[in-house]
Measured scan of single mutants.
Amino acid sequence: DHDVVPEDKFQETLHLKEKEGCPQAFHALLSWLLTQDSTAILDFWRVLFKDYNLERYGRLQPILDSFPKDVDLSQPRKGRKPPAVPKALVPPPRLPTKRKASEEARAAAPAALTPRGTASPGSQLKAKPPKKPESSAEQQRLPLGNGIQTMSASVQRAVAMSSGDVPGARGAVEGILIQQVFESGGSKKCIQVGGEFYTPSKFEDSGSGKNKARSSSGPKPLVRAKGAQGAAPGGGEARLGQQGSVPAPLALPSDPQLHQKNEDECAVCRDGGELICCDGCPRAFHLACLSPPLREIPSGTWRCSSCLQATVQEVQPRAEEPRPQEPPVETPLPPGLRSAGEEVRGPPGEPLAGMDTTLVYKHLPAPPSAAPLPGLDSSALHPLLCVGPEGQQNLAPGARCGVCGDGTDVLRCTHCAAAFHWRCHFPAGTSRPGTGLRCRSCSGDVTPAPVEGVLAPSPARLAPGPAKDDTASHEPALHRDDLESLLSEHTFDGILQWAIQSMARPAAPFPS
């Protein structure tokens, strides 16, 4: 592969990997390779389809078979030569091979799209000592099968071997295949498990690692696999990028399955594409389908809103127990993405979901129960707010008499603000006073009005108090039968009158 990737590009890729991570280095090298001529790309395919690569990765054979028959990708048995050289000459001794072996032994695996480039050397060096003999053996194999790289107009793939297949390693990572398949204008990513390549439709969760975000852009890794992070704060999961590491605690105790298979379609829109997988259930989501939507993949363990709600429900009964003089119970939860139609709101002032922060849900004790107040519409209280300059209440639009249902020339009671006709409430011909108009209920007259088809109010509507207090003497005590009587009149003013009279009014101040 030294004929494909020059030394300066190799060093530039290593520097970019240390600065921005393996995914960015892979993407940059792939983009550079696509700008080369067809001879360089053909050399790339020839390096990929060597015999030892085909033996190690069985899924490469179907890719090789898909090439046109007129494309010669065979390799000479006596060494490598550029395709432009007409004579089959043995190339001179390859010093770059020693360079590659020494550099890969030092860096474990470079971040390139060629056999030198995919593992994360920093994480491997940190986690190597417990498994040094086995990992050293794996390093000797890295130059042979560490990076199976493929690129063409139909298929483009980048393979990364790992030393996680050490025997006896619980939940060992089998390997990473960062794979971009450009077929019919689409893009897919796969993962390699035990020599087999699994596409998103049959993606397997190998051991402790999972394909957290099938994305090839942005600074985030394709698999949430930063070796420096180790395990999740809650004892979460091992990262795919942690090559040759000792077994780590796999999943939280509440995880239903340690080796679950995540779905390959969004649980909201039932469509495929780039998904984020939940650590607590097999569901996966688009970032845009979450509520609120996320802009980037959160670091650490992530769970959907259903799993978060289940966790909150487990903690909430203990938080609601009476604990005198104790601060509110704080339950730190990872930043969760909410699927459509589901929402768990945190306290005000918290950062938005999706940031690399930890939301704190506070379970406050329930407030003391209070008697429910009568629910009145805002339009129902409008007549009470229509007060004239002299303190006389004006008529609201649409006000109707509670007896006849007519809204023409209605009066407004100064005591309960109900609309009424003087002739309907006082049919006996009582003279109307000039000021202080009161309806039949507030004036103490319980004589029913002779209106055909309208039920008369119940005599129990009024329960006047002592006459010594004029204001308190007109406080009506309405009961269920009074409400039914008012409802039978089918008037809004009657219902409003009952609601206003049912509310307690402050006692009249004593004259000074």
Results as ranks from 00 to 15, higher is better:
residue 475 E to I: 07
residue 308 L to C: 13
residue 267 A to Y: 08
residue 353 A to S: 07
residue 399 A to M: 02
residue 389 P to G: 15
residue 492 F to R: 00
residue 443 S to Y: 13
residue 249 P to Y: 12
residue 408 T to F: 07
residue 396 A to W: 13
residue 508 A to T: 08
residue 278 C to Y: 07
residue 302 W to Y: 07
residue 285 F to L: 11
residue 373 L to N: 12
residue 396 A to G: 06
residue 428 A to E: 09
residue 422 W to H: 07
residue 282 P to Y: 09
residue 368 P to M: 06
residue 492 F to G: 02
residue 310 A to L: 14
residue 477 A to Q: 08
residue 402 G to D: 01
residue 464 P to S: 08
residue 456 A to T: 14
residue 285 F to P: 13
residue 431 S to Y: 13
residue 259 H to N: 10
residue 364 L to K: 09
residue 462 L to S: 10
residue 448 P to T: 06
residue 277 C to E: 14
residue 310 A to E: 09
residue 309 Q to R: 08
residue 447 T to A: 05
residue 453 G to C: 05
residue 329 V to C: 09
residue 382 H to F: 15
residue 389 P to R: 08
residue 376 L to A: 04
residue 412 R to W: 07
residue 477 A to S: 09
residue 256 P to S: 14
residue 380 A to P: 06
residue 405 G to T: 06
residue 281 C to P: 11
residue 471 T to Q: 15
residue 267 A to E: 08
residue 312 V to Q: 05
residue 469 D to L: 09
residue 387 V to H: 05
residue 391 G to Q: 15
residue 485 S to G: 06
residue 504 A to L: 02
residue 365 P to H: 13
residue 439 C to D: 00
residue 262 N to A: 08
residue 471 T to W: 13
residue 436 G to R: 09
residue 277 C to I: 06
residue 390 E to G: 14
residue 292 P to E: 15
residue 495 I to C: 02
residue 338 R to P: 05
residue 357 T to G: 12
residue 432 R to W: 12
residue 485 S to H: 10
residue 454 V to Y: 12
residue 425 H to M: 04
residue 391 G to T: 15
residue 243 Q to L: 07
residue 343 E to P: 13
residue 245 S to E: 07
residue 428 A to T: 04
residue 344 V to K: 09
residue 372 P to R: 10
residue 446 V to A: 06
residue 433 P to Q: 10
residue 320 E to N: 09
residue 385 L to R: 06
residue 315 V to T: 10
residue 466 P to Q: 12
residue 354 G to T: 13
residue 269 C to H: 06
residue 508 A to S: 06
residue 276 I to G: 11
residue 442 C to V: 02
residue 501 Q to I: 01
residue 249 P to R: 08
residue 508 A to P: 07
residue 410 V to E: 12
residue 287 L to V: 09
residue 429 G to A: 09
residue 257 Q to H: 10
residue 279 D to R: 09
residue 405 G to R: 11
residue 318 R to P: 10
residue 280 G to E: 06
residue 254 S to H: 09
residue 355 M to L: 12
residue 382 H to S: 07
residue 281 C to L: 08
residue 510 F to P: 12
residue 483 L to D: 07
residue 283 R to S: 13
residue 302 W to L: 10
residue 448 P to L: 07
residue 367 P to V: 07
residue 508 A to H: 09
residue 266 C to Q: 04
residue 489 E to D: 09
residue 412 R to N: 13
residue 325 Q to E: 12
residue 500 I to V: 04
residue 305 S to M: 14
residue 272 G to R: 09
residue 282 P to D: 11
residue 330 E to K: 11
residue 468 K to A: 04
residue 295 R to L: 11
residue 350 E to R: 11
residue 282 P to A: 05
residue 400 R to C: 09
residue 255 D to R: 11
residue 490 H to S: 13
residue 346 G to D: 13
